[in-house]
């Protein structure tokens, strides 16, 4: 690495002005847990590094009544320790708790997990289920993009002069629940091999009236599993429905992953992960109904 200039940003306005000045020559650093490795392996070679890890306005978790807004600089530890992410938002807590190790969770940020675009980023599938919005700032103003589009649409990227400042989503209703399951190779420090997040709501008869399923590492990027959602909508969660749902999911992932060496393994593993996420969701919903 050959950095010419480093800045310790004090506020968002200062950082967006630096991004406007340096554009592609600059790189943002927050927790550094990915970027310091990339710098040292020469996978990236910016001239300028702008640190945002001390900017207080990026480190807040705001409860805005119907909405929650999480600052891009919020660490995984902050999410895990925040009582907002208990009960029906527990899936996000669990996903953040399964990131790396205590040291990585203390430094690593939600914003970094998104801005670095890793296909295995643990926190993303739950945020996709919540239909999260990414809030970006630049000297030109403020812009919002949906997190789902950010991953699937080539034209919906964070531009070189933009800073990801926060992630917002609508709180699920009390009778909706977000759950998460991840398969890693070991307990700590495991890069996610595959993950599933589910947001689900049942009617009084137990039929699914709302469902969002998002996967991590089952394709080039984290994504909604629309075919599975369509299949499950309106059905009761009987064993045969779940078994068939697994087949729908396996067929959908086969289209994306067929021919890859990891496919046969992931095809089997996804079965267990989907059931685990579903069981966790049902456990919560049963408690709410009692």
């Amino acid at each position: 690495m050959a950095l010419e200039e480093v800045y310790k940003g004090e506020n968002v306005d200062e950082v967006v002005e630096l991004l406007d000045k340096y554009g592609k020559d600059a790189k943002i650093i927050a927790g550094g847990t990915d970027i310091v490795i990339d710098l040292r392996n020469n996978r990236i070679d910016p001239k300028v590094l702008i640190d945002i890890s001390s900017i207080e306005e990026l480190k807040g978790i705001k409860d805005k009544g119907e909405y929650i807004e999480i600052g891009a600089g919020v660490s995984f530890t902050q999410v895990v320790e925040n009582p907002l992410f208990e009960r029906n938002l527990y899936g996000l807590n669990k996903a953040c708790h399964m990131v790396g190790s205590p040291q990585i969770r203390n430094k690593g940020t939600l914003g970094g997990n998104i801005a670095n675009g890793s296909p295995a980023a643990d926190s993303i599938p739950p945020l996709i289920c919540l239909n999260s919005t990414l809030i970006l700032k630049s000297v030109r103003g403020r812009r919002e993009i949906s997190i789902e589009d950010y991953y699937k649409d080539e034209n919906e990227k964070i531009r070189p002069d933009e800073l990801l400042v926060s992630i917002g989503f609508k709180k699920p209703k009390e009778n909706q629940v977000l759950s998460f399951a991840k398969l890693g190779l070991r307990k700590a420090l495991a890069i996610s091999r595959l993950s599933i997040a589910i947001l689900v709501e049942l009617d009084e008869e137990g039929k699914i009236i709302n469902i969002e399923v998002a996967s991590g590492s089952l394709g080039k990027y984290p994504m909604r599993e629309l075919e599975l959602e369509q299949f499950l909508l309106g059905k009761k969660l009987e064993d045969s429905t779940v078994d068939e749902g697994v087949l729908v999911l396996q067929r959908a992932m086969e289209k994306r992953l067929a021919g890859r060496s990891t496919f046969p393994y992931k095809r089997v593993a996804v079965d267990r992960m989907f059931r685990e996420a579903l069981e966790e969701a049902m456990k919560y919903l049963d408690e709410v109904r009692l």
């Binding site: 310790k8 927790g31 550094g32 847990t33 640190d51 001390s54 990585i104 430094k107």
Partner: peptide, 21 residues
């Protein structure tokens, strides 16, 4: 591992200039 502002960090993943203050 060192403790930075009360929390553990892996000091190989922190740039020195980030530790200002």
């Amino acid at each position: 591992t060192v403790i930075m502002d009360g929390e553990t960090v892996t000091s190989c993943l922190v740039m020195a200039f980030q530790a200002h203050g």
